[in-house]
């Protein structure tokens, strides 16, 4: 299950709508081992495409360096699909490189840049196997082990 706070959920949806029809992408990182999406990092889609996304390689390096310095890891890796459903494509599955992360897909196909509901779904993608999981939106995600 993915637990995500309302403000972060809203930020991801806002990003997807703003970038529509280009695919929006980014991460929500959190303390290592916490499974808590704590810090939203919006990334630039270097492909600038409605059907593909890729982080710029320098941005990617900076992000991982920053996470390393802060003892963080990717908790949520998200991107949008602007014309298809919020389900991982073959490309998404083949390129999923973080077995510990929740892969979130937001589909903006219904309302585009305009207000209105989106599809927001989360998956685990491990060794090519996709498993959908429940998304629970809460006011604040309670830290699990990290404070003990």
């Amino acid at each position: 299950m993915l637990q995500i706070d309302q403000a972060t959920y809203d930020a991801l949806v806002e990003h997807a709508k703003r970038d529509h029809p280009v695919e929006a992408c980014g991460m929500v990182v959190g303390p290592i081992g916490s499974d808590r999406p704590a810090r939203h990092v919006e990334m630039v889609n270097a492909a600038g495409s409605p059907t593909f996304y890729e982080y710029d390689s320098t941005d990617l390096f900076q992000l991982y360096k920053e996470m390393d310095d802060r003892d963080e890891e990717p908790v949520v890796i998200y991107h949008s699909h602007s014309a298809t459903e919020a389900y991982p494509s073959v490309t998404d599955i083949n390129l999923a490189g973080e077995p510990g992360a929740h892969y979130v897909l937001v589909s903006t196909r219904e309302h585009g840049n305009n207000p209105g509901p989106v599809e927001f779904r989360s998956y685990r993608i491990i060794d090519g196997v996709v498993t959908e999981e429940e998304v629970t939106i809460v006011d604040t995600v309670i830290p699990s082990e990290e404070s003990s």
């Binding site: 492909a47 890729e54 990617l60 494509s89 490309t91 998404d92």
Partner: peptide, 11 residues
């Protein structure tokens, strides 16, 4: 440093 690209998309 080795990093897998973070990439994907509907295509």
């Amino acid at each position: 440093v080795i990093l897998p690209a973070v990439a994907g998309g509907a295509r």
